[in-house]
Design a protein around this nucleic acid. Sequence first.
DNA 1: TCCATTTAGTCAATCAGCTTGACCATATAG
DNA 2: CTATATGGTCAAGCTGATTGACTAAATGGA
Lengths: 147, 147
Amino acid sequence: MPVQLLDLPVLLLSAARALVDGIDAGVRARGFTDLRPAHGFAFARLAGDGATVMQLAEHLDVTKQAASQMVEDLAKKGYVERRPHPDDARARLIVLTEKGRACTRAADEAAEEVLRPWAEQLGPERLATLRQDLSKLATPGRVRPTW
Amino acid sequence: MPVQLLDLPVLLLSAARALVDGIDAGVRARGFTDLRPAHGFAFARLAGDGATVMQLAEHLDVTKQAASQMVEDLAKKGYVERRPHPDDARARLIVLTEKGRACTRAADEAAEEVLRPWAEQLGPERLATLRQDLSKLATPGRVRPTW
DNA sequence: TCCATTTAGTCAATCAGCTTGACCATATAG
DNA sequence: CTATATGGTCAAGCTGATTGACTAAATGGA
């Protein structure tokens, strides 16, 4: 195996970090300064039809207590809302507020802004290849890195 | 811009996470159970001629106090050693002990183990392309992700 | 040469985010 | 109808980071 390969980990992590940092900066620049990247992973799960605390905990790969604390924090800041769950009286359905949706739109814009120069640099076909190859390598499920 | 691109962040993060988790598991399997992935980034900087606490702090993108605490922890566990700095009496040169070098070898093996199936799946030329493209995207310097 | 400022490192206190453990309310299975 | 499992919160504690204060040594003028 060529030794060169051993720096692939560093490149991968560096690119991932550049991406996350860039999106985080873009979100902050749009006025959402009280959020961290980790909140973005939560928003991604809540967008759409919302989720329970348990579902959120699984998505983030943390305990239900930690997820509950994050929801409490996000609710206090006005990004999410706890509704009674339609099918289960024990559970609550956590959904994004209008402020929360506005923030996800800002994150989408920020992501596009970060990716645009990448797309220009590589060209569309190589970017598509990159996407395909990464999809083969990525472990499905685990999204949020916590190291 | 094609909407597809918006899932590139997720793929990138997912691949990075798979990689870090895999290496971490490999290192633990080789008997180094008292280390976290973050220590690996420190070892990478210390390998070779060692580094000062300040240099380590910059590499890890944390305060000098945090770096100092990590060094204290690694020294207590026997992975590093603080020597007087040859050129500066204020500074200390942090170097890996034999145990520390053994651990970096274990990490290299683990990394190779994780990358081997990737290389087989993509083939050498596509992997080389992946490496090249990632190197264009990666922000030089920032290695350790802390989000 | 002497003094002012910068730099390397540590100690101490604090904080944020996560964990474990205990608990209540509701759902589900026998 | 009762026993158990599940969703959620409260409380306490831990870990890894932060800021602030300090000492010792280096640097850079007058």
